[in-house]
Amino acid sequence: MEHPPDLKITLIGAGTIGLSFAAFHLSHLSHLSASHVTIYDTRPNAESYILESLPQFYGTHSPPLLSNVRIATTLEGAVSGAHIIQESGPENLAIKQALWAEVEKHAPETALLWSSTSGIPASLQAQDMTDKTRLLVVHPYNPPHIMPLLELVPSPDTSPNVISRTEEFWRQRGRVPILVKKEITGFVANRLAFALLRESIHLVDSGVVSISDLDRIVESSMGPRWAVAGPFKSYHAGGGPAGLEGFFNNIGQTVQDCWDDAGKVNVGEGWEQKIFSEAREVYGAVDTGERDRITRRLLDVLAEEREKGRRK
């Protein structure tokens, strides 16, 4: 995907996800002096909030020049002339439908239109658009200025050209865009994470383990393992020469017993007060700076080791 020397990226919404994306894009515009990131947000103190908050996303890294940032005061002004328009607004279907219908009126016909939604399909968001082929969900894993994954979730109407241009954009920037073949609630990463969260709540609420010990179990076992290999590759390796089939031949009944006994907790069933209270008592306010610093280092090490493997 060829990018113009004056690449213009517009971000709609200056919440945590929107500003994290801004930090990422700005880091990759440093060699394009004529390029800039435009941010549009409806909060009354948008400009001061954005300019004060953005540097915090770089941690110990030097932030890029904020001269590459433009703060738009109208939606029309934000999207006119943009090559890429990325929405990270509230998780509200009506808001997103109205937003994209308005964006479509003022954005260039060739602009890429992306939604960072955590779970609202592009097919629903695009209902009021004239050209539904233009919209694509580009779902990040938080925080997107650090985490490599982008789930690309097209609607049945999304143009293949939009998908391929988007894939190439992210690959050129060292990210991992994964095409999700069908729209599904929560997409893939969140469904996997929320399945683990549900069983974690069940185990703590049932008195099997404490919150802190459950986290230590994950951090000391599947956490580092899954950073190296996902569940299929991990258990395929665990089955020895017979692979995944051998794994199920060995302990398939135990797997089934755990599936049968999996927690069926649901939101609003009364576990919340106990779980939320224990989480506050154990962790208070989590130091996300430490989280991001360690995550960056972990990803750097993984990239270094995989590069060594490719050279062999």
Rank of each mutant, 00 (worst) to 15 (best):
S80H: 10
V208A: 12
Y49I: 06
V267L: 11
I120R: 03
C258L: 13
H202G: 08
D215Q: 04
M129I: 11
E290S: 15
L7H: 04
Q86C: 07
A227G: 09
Q253L: 08
R306C: 02
F276D: 13
D131A: 00
A101H: 02
R43M: 12
D6I: 10
F24Q: 08
A46C: 11
S35M: 01
D157A: 14
L99A: 00
D260Y: 09
N142M: 04
D257G: 11
I39C: 04
D287L: 08
V208H: 06
K181N: 09
I201D: 01
V286S: 04
L54P: 03
L298W: 10
G289N: 15
N142T: 12
I201H: 02
R175D: 00
S116Y: 05
S35P: 00
I211A: 10
T158F: 11
E2H: 14
V79Q: 05
H236E: 15
R297T: 14
I71P: 01
L203H: 03
H31N: 15
E307G: 08
H61T: 15
V228R: 11
I85R: 02
S155G: 12
G59E: 02
E245W: 06
A82C: 09
I217S: 15
R134N: 08
G174P: 03
S115H: 03
L54W: 03
F169Y: 14
G230W: 00
E167K: 15
R171Y: 03
A98M: 03
E91V: 04
I12S: 08
L197S: 10
L152I: 02
V228K: 09
Y58K: 12
E272S: 04
K132Q: 04
N142G: 03
G77Y: 04
T38R: 09
A111S: 11
R43D: 03
P160Y: 06
